[in-house]
Each structure stands twice: as structure tokens, then as C-alpha cells.
Simulated assay, not measured.
Amino acid sequence: MKLSKQNRKHHSAALELLTKDKLTWEEQQFFFDNYFECADFDVSKAGAFFTPSDLALDAALENGQTDKEIHVLDLCAGIGVLSWAVLTRCPNAKVTAVEQNPKWVEIGKKLLPEVNWICADLAELDLVELGYFDSVVTNPPFGRVPTLKSLKCPRYTGSEAHYKVLDIASVMAPSITAIIPQQSCSWAYSKKRSFSEQTSKQLDRFVSETGIQFGMNMGIDTSSYGSFKATNITVEVVCCEYESASWEDFGVGSNVLPFIKCDVAPKQTNVVPIADAPDIPSNNKRREQLAAGHQLDMFG
């Protein structure tokens, strides 16, 4: 994508910040807002569109706000804007970010050195060894993405990359906050006059195979925020509701999950195993978590 003269200027100013030893919170936000991922990469082919920083900050509220130590996994992290938003809301969180683009991981490590960055393809990463987390945040690749074509999932057998990532995430944590295309959601709220339900063959297949439902957020209209830089797509912030599961439920090493034990060594750095993984609740639908007090105190 060819940038305008002004956007190129902003992009260069953002890159200049990487020469500093440490960035302030405001400089981090400036970088997220002015770094154009489409300047050097064909993001449309990869279906990778970075979340606007203001949207990321509000989406992170769905994950709670607390000073407690929690373990959060950021899947398909890009340069880490969702990780940054989580750390803004939960400063003592232990965040692990997985991203396959080495350049974006390099940038992410400079922006957020406190995050445990893993440079790896999801199809090659040993997800069982990675462990369980308190929650997952993700803005996954949208649509049918060639780089994730070989990615196998616990239940979902379709081709939509964002559905694949959500199916995997549901086995790694009892809570998922995700940003997905509005057309792939079971409801529409953003850029609409009112809330409405919707469906599609692809969505019906995903729900039927995984049991994952898309819960409404706190009232986030994504059209009210800064726009994505390389696409005009409308998205929704979804709070996934699903029954708990573990890798053992699907047979580790079986044909169901061929990616769990792989022969290809993933490219990763500073991998820190999660020592004290949270217990997996017997039923982790979001409304039941709220009723049981499992969800973090929004104002804690």
C-alpha cells in the first residue's frame, strides 16, 4: 500500500522512537497510532490489520481492570497494541504475545520489553507446553489466510482464520476478548442504528462445531474510534462464551491435533512457562463467571 506524504512522515516519526532506550506510555501510543504496518508488508494478503489504540484500550476493559497478577495470552499479537492495552488496565499482568512476523516481534520487544514475546507460527507452536492462561485477547487475521491454511483446530474444520484462532484460544483460557469482522459475528451493533442479530452459513458451522457463542460487549461501537489503517472493514468486540475444555479432551498427539507435538522447532525468544496455570472451571460461560465472581473487578 502506498502511503500519502503525511502518513509517510508520521510513519518515519514513529520509527525514530525505536532509537530510544525506553518509551513513555504516550510515546508508545504515538507509535501504535502512526506506525503503518502496510508500509512494508502486504497485510491484506495476511488478513492482519492492527487495532487502533483507543479501541484497544476500551476492548481491554472487557478483560477487567486490576492490580492483581494475572496471566494473559495475546494471540496473533502484531506489534502488541492489545498487550499494551491490557498492561494499561492491569499493570501487574504477565502477558505472553505470540506473533509469526519477526519484524513485528522485534518492534514489539522494543515497545513492550516486559512482555514475553514468542516469534512462532501457530501451526508450529507447542500450545500444550505454552500452558493455560487467565484470559486470551486477540485481533486475529481476518478471512481465509494462506499462512494459516495448514493450522488445525480442536473442533473447527472450516477455513476462516479468525474462527480457527478462537477455537484454539478456547482451550487455553476461560475467557476470550476478540476483535472479529462484523459479518462473522452473530450480532451487529457498530455503525448501526440499533442492535440486531444475524447469522451466516460460516457462523452456523463455527458455532455448531465449537459451541462458542459471541456475547455482547459493554456497548462498544467500533465506528466511534480511530479507523484501521489498511482496511475499511467494520469489526465487533466479542466476549466469547463456551464450555471449558483442555487439550486432553481432544487427545494429545492424535490426528485431531497434529500441531500439538510438531517436528518443526518454532522461532521463539524468552519463553517463560506458566508455572501456576489457573484451574479450568467446569463451566466457564462468561455470565456464570460474573455470577460466581470469577471475572476481575472492573474498578478494582
Results as ranks from 00 to 15, higher is better:
78 G>T: 07
83 S>H: 04
119 C>S: 13
90 C>T: 13
53 S>I: 11
81 V>H: 00
28 Q>K: 15
106 E>T: 14
119 C>Y: 08
91 P>N: 12
26 E>R: 09
21 D>N: 11
105 V>S: 07
50 F>A: 10
98 V>Y: 05
62 E>C: 14
106 E>M: 04
33 D>K: 12
87 L>F: 08
93 A>F: 08
61 L>M: 09
54 D>I: 04
21 D>C: 04
96 T>G: 11
79 I>R: 11
97 A>N: 12
109 K>G: 02
56 A>L: 03
58 D>K: 13
72 V>Q: 06
54 D>V: 01
65 Q>E: 15
63 N>E: 08
30 F>M: 05
106 E>V: 03
34 N>D: 00
109 K>D: 08
118 I>P: 06
75 L>S: 00
119 C>P: 13
25 W>E: 10
32 F>V: 02
41 F>W: 13
90 C>M: 12
105 V>P: 07
69 E>L: 04
46 A>C: 12
28 Q>M: 06
54 D>M: 01
48 A>V: 12
45 K>C: 10
84 W>D: 06
90 C>W: 00
63 N>W: 01
54 D>N: 13
30 F>C: 02
81 V>G: 04
69 E>A: 11
92 N>H: 14
96 T>H: 02
110 K>F: 00
32 F>R: 01
50 F>T: 10
47 G>H: 08
